[in-house]
Amino acid sequence: MSIAPVILVVDDDPSIRESLSSELRVSSYTTVSAGNGQEGLRAFAAHAPDLVLTDLAMPRSDGFELISAIRATSRTPIIVLSVRGNDPDKIRALDLGADDFVTKPFSVAELLARIRAQLRRTASATAATLSFDELTIDLERRKVTQGGRDIHLTPTEYGLLELLASNAGKPMFIEHIIARVWRNAPGTTADTVRVHMSSLRKKIEPDPSNPRYIVTEPWVGYRFIAEPVP
């Protein structure tokens, strides 16, 4: 990317907004900021950012309204800054179309990894091959290699891997996985997904005690780890 990606930071707390923006600029992003959902939406229209970071609880117009409003017109990645323990809010935000979240207080390194994952996902939307560390997925030939070795997957396992990897960094709801991979076949349950996911993970993870590629996402489903948090 030759031009610095623009990130819109929406938070009602000025010290978070400013320190975060300043850290993002150090990492060569251009930033725009807003103090509530309404301002955020105006800034979104005016600056067409490449990614949005938004708090959820804000006076007047909150993060949920902002997410819905942005999703009505655009697929720009949205990362939510959520508060620890408030999982229902986090899940609602994902349901409305947010792509990922970090939990306050987060480390900047963690946030930067999440941002890179989202920007990379939108940039590689039309790629023919996906690769992460040692894992390569050839989407045209439906071939998977890990550390140079061919991995033999069942069609269901391949479907799961393709869906998750092409949405790397994004928590995927079980319902969505069942709809996409099983086409909502009757009798498909979360347990069906668990069984196939477990065998897929055994095949692709170099060290099953230390998952590198796929982890469960509490109360949501699964997430493909685009980039391990440093």
């Binding site: 010290s15 320190s19 300043s22 150090v26 900047v108």
Partner: peptide, 18 residues
């Protein structure tokens, strides 16, 4: 309480890293 404690802590974390 969670929000009020977490907000300053987040700002401190970011600034300390800076």
């Amino acid at each position: 309480v969670s929000h009020d404690l977490t907000t300053p802590l987040t700002a401190i974390t970011i600034q300390t890293e800076a």
